[in-house]
Amino acid sequence: MSITVEQQQPTANPFQAPRTAHNARRRISNIAIVALSLLATAFAVAVLLFLLLYVLRAGLPYINLDLFTKIPTPNGEPGGGLANSIQGSLILVGLASLFGIPLGLFTGIYLSEFGGRGPIATGVRFLVDVLTGIPTIIFGLFAWIFIVVPQQSFSGLAGGVALGIIMIPIVARTSEVVLRLVPNELREASLALGATESRTILRVVIPSARNGIITGIVLAMARVAGETAPLLMTAFGNPFFNSDITQPMDALPLRIFNFAESPYQAQINQAYAGSLVLIVLILITSFAIRWATGGFKHGGR
């Protein structure tokens, strides 16, 4: 690094850096970087806005009551809706939550309350982190081999299991973080009153961390609501209403995938509409979480 101090001209402003070629270059490169980074940020923001606005414009005209009450019409005939997809998504997310929340939450409890910094806990923590990096289609394969193939049928159950596995690390990680944040004094105060460890955790520690835990759960649910790949070979999709989890089940992302590549414009329109519904859902969830945790107030994420 070469920041040099030059001889000043006699009448120069002592608070201004001398106008040498070197300093000019420094100034220019500074401005250039500011400009480039601004450009990069603008690009990212612009892409998102463009995407959102495009989907809004393409999908909004087709948002109507039918969308939420009717099932798709065969072969691109006009009308119909995505009601079965929405219902299927709700069932699948519910199923996934049943599976993923307890596993994730108790893993978080273990890591925070019992494991601490020990070697086993470190291993488990690492495993959980690794779980987040596995592409979701792999969990679909897992459920495919484990449930679909033996049953010889696609099923909502398999889809729910695959989605549940995706939820586990998200819930575990956020739970662990917020549980750790509960001050130790609270635990001590409870124990000093003669409460058992389990009572302390259940009645004092977890309620203290309740908001953070719920945030993690909602985050995980929003995430799996948009997942498609693992459902391809598990829930598979279904053009009719189906609430039987042992049978193929539809989901909103699946239907969007299906319709996006359709030759029928009517179905493409509904794909946009469905995308809009999905995006709005996720946006609301993201905003709600940020607002609930006060994320807009300070410079945190």
């Binding site: 001050p183 001590e188 409870s190 000093a192 309620p207 203290s208």
Partner: peptide, 19 residues
Amino acid sequence: VALRQRIGMVFQRPTPFPK
């Protein structure tokens, strides 16, 4: 656990439960 029901403790900083 039984002991602590007979010997109570108050800590340096107030530690009210979130209840």
